[in-house]
């Protein structure tokens, strides 16, 4: 497994992501600067990490979504290769046109930094094969703009095509307004593109992978990816 973590000015979670990839997948990822125009040869997985790319100016992810490296990422995704965007990475993938919809300011207009519960909607995806369908996991969020919005037709299509992989829920897996912390439509926390090879999600699974962190629920995502790529090799 050869992964690449994109680095934009203002990103601050790239080292967390690199550490997790090294820890769970056993390989050191390449760190790829935003001004580069190509990905390292043989890359299996591109990760767009969280942070505040370009200080969140214009809109979150708007500038990074148009960075030079993103043409290479779009070409990479078009081949069916795996792309994961977390938090600001999700916003960047939406701005880059790789995922539909937009992440608006949280409905309560407050920055959220806490653990949330997610229901894994399906396990037959490269990103969720490390979980069981219906499993509830606990992972942290840290964002001011995670309120997923799309037009009604897009939401209907996402739901009909099973493209919602993660949904905010209570500890028992019930979707409830009180547990949909940022107000996302249909409690959406993570979606994939039509081909299922590009995932964007607001929570940070990379921050719950070691017992020292108090929880290892995020580990399944990366272990599943490593397993998927090992089988594909």
């Amino acid at each position: 497994m050869k992964s690449a973590v994109l680095v934009f000015p203002g990103i601050n979670r790239e080292r967390d992501m690199a550490r997790t990839l090294r820890l769970v997948c056993g390989h050191e990822p390449a760190m790829v600067w935003h001004a580069d125009t190509t990905l390292p040869a043989g890359t299996d997985l591109v990760v767009v990490p969280g942070g505040f790319s370009y200080g969140d100016y214009l809109r979150c992810g708007a500038i990074a979504g148009r960075a030079p490296i993103m043409d290479a990422v779009r070409a990479f995704a078009a081949k069916g290769a795996l792309v994961l965007g977390v938090c600001n990475g999700f916003q960047i993938l939406c701005e880059a046109g790789l995922l539909p919809g937009v992440l608006m300011r949280n409905s309560q207009l407050k920055f959220l930094c806490r653990d949330v519960y997610l229901k894994v909607e399906r396990s037959d995806s490269p990103f969720t094969r490390g979980y069981n369908a219906g499993q509830v996991i606990r992972v942290p969020v840290a964002h001011g703009e995670g309120n997923y919005i799309a037009d009604a037709a897009t939401i209907a299509r996402l739901e009909a095509e099973g493209r919602v992989l993660f949904r905010y829920c209570d500890p028992n897996g019930n979707t409830d307004l009180d547990w949909n912390h940022n107000g996302s439509l249909n409690a959406i926390a993570g979606i994939v593109n039509e081909r299922g090879n590009v995932l964007g999600m607001m929570p940070h699974p990379e921050n719950h992978v070691e017992s020292a962190m108090g929880c290892t629920d995020g580990r399944g995502l990366f272990a599943g990816l490593a397993d998927h790529l090992a089988r594909a090799a």
Binding site: N12, R13, G50, G51, F52, C87, F111, C113, A142, H143
Partner: peptide
């Protein structure tokens, strides 16, 4: 993300 602390 860790911006919150300094702001507060």
């Amino acid at each position: 993300m860790p911006l919150k602390g300094p702001i507060l």
